[in-house]
Computed example of a mutant assay.
Amino acid sequence: MNTTFENTLPIFNFSLQDLPGEVWLPVHGSEDFALISQFGRVKRIPRHFTSLIGDNRYYGERIYQPTVKTYTTFKSGGYRYHLCCTISAERTHRVFNVAKMVYFLFNKPFPMDDIDYKIIPVNGKDLDIRPDNLELIFVKDPKIDILRIKPTYSLDAKLRIFNKMEYSKELIYRLGVISCYSVHGDRICTFKNITKASQLTHLSVTDIENAIIKPFLLVHGCYWRSGKDGKINTSLMELKQQQEENQRRGVQLTQFDLSGNPINYYYSIAEAAKDNGISETEILNCLHDRQQVAAYSFWKKGYHETSIPGI
């Protein structure tokens, strides 16, 4: 992973020590649970929590790790990044766009739930979310980008839905010139269009389309982009690959409260055990039906958004 790249972005600084000039404000809608600074760092507020059975638990201060997400803008044939943060508290689970929250609190309020409002970086760097680099725009065109479908859908789900629209494939083919790049971001070759690239490389058109739509995807050891830039930044690719590798190494878990409602999600048993102050064995016992409850919670493998029978 590119350590130098991460060190230049405050959002990847997970130290509890304040950065120079850092100001913290309550997260809108989660004022009792989290703070956010003008650098996009989100911090959990220490608190005591009483479970449904009367047990008192303590959640200490911590910096939340953001999730880097990507989406395709079919209008321009490009792609964009944005940061999301997940807050789990008081039997609730909330995901919000970090750049929107920074603009709302440090620039001016706007209807954050209205998907016609977009936040874009002035300098073109999507992860530079300082307030003075953010611009609010109003976009009414429902074809402007793939996020118009539903923000909570996964990228694959969005693509399946979007591909049902007649103009989606046509727009992809109109991308024109495309290029392939090495894992280090150096341009290897440029092609007149996708069809020509398929003929010369013996890759299927579908594989190349998927690589353009999903910028983190390697096809036969190469990245693919529309246009003919001499070099692309692969730092985010390395970060995404590291996140996916961490997910593959662990066991994805869903934590439920005693009423059966999902309250948290983890990518490994070790992470879940550390965050809840219990041993990994207790969670394993729950997963293998050797015990029912650990940390006053139910546990199941996988990602579950629906409730289960509670006590």
Results as ranks from 00 to 15, higher is better:
residue 75 K to R: 14
residue 62 R to P: 00
residue 64 Y to F: 14
residue 54 G to D: 05
residue 60 G to F: 08
residue 51 S to F: 06
residue 61 E to R: 14
residue 46 P to H: 07
residue 48 H to V: 09
residue 61 E to N: 09
residue 71 Y to K: 00
residue 71 Y to W: 11
residue 63 I to R: 06
residue 70 T to K: 11
residue 58 Y to H: 09
residue 76 S to D: 12
residue 60 G to C: 02
residue 48 H to Q: 09
residue 67 T to F: 08
residue 45 I to Q: 13
residue 54 G to E: 02
residue 46 P to Q: 05
residue 60 G to K: 12
residue 73 T to N: 15
residue 53 I to A: 03
residue 73 T to M: 09
residue 63 I to S: 02
residue 62 R to E: 06
residue 74 F to V: 01
residue 71 Y to P: 00
residue 72 T to H: 15
residue 58 Y to Q: 01
residue 51 S to H: 07
residue 46 P to M: 12
residue 45 I to T: 09
residue 68 V to S: 04
residue 53 I to E: 10
residue 72 T to G: 09
residue 70 T to Y: 10
residue 69 K to E: 11
residue 77 G to H: 10
residue 62 R to Q: 06
residue 60 G to I: 03
residue 71 Y to F: 05
residue 47 R to K: 04
residue 69 K to S: 14
residue 45 I to S: 05
residue 45 I to N: 08
residue 49 F to P: 03
residue 49 F to M: 09
residue 60 G to M: 11
residue 68 V to W: 04
residue 48 H to M: 13
residue 68 V to E: 01
residue 63 I to F: 00
residue 47 R to A: 00
residue 45 I to W: 04
residue 58 Y to V: 08
residue 77 G to Y: 00
residue 54 G to Q: 06
residue 63 I to D: 07
residue 60 G to T: 00
residue 72 T to Q: 04
residue 63 I to C: 02
residue 50 T to Q: 15
residue 53 I to M: 06
residue 53 I to C: 06
residue 59 Y to A: 07
residue 66 P to S: 00
residue 56 N to F: 05
residue 70 T to D: 11
residue 63 I to N: 02
residue 74 F to N: 03
residue 67 T to H: 14
residue 77 G to R: 06
residue 67 T to M: 07
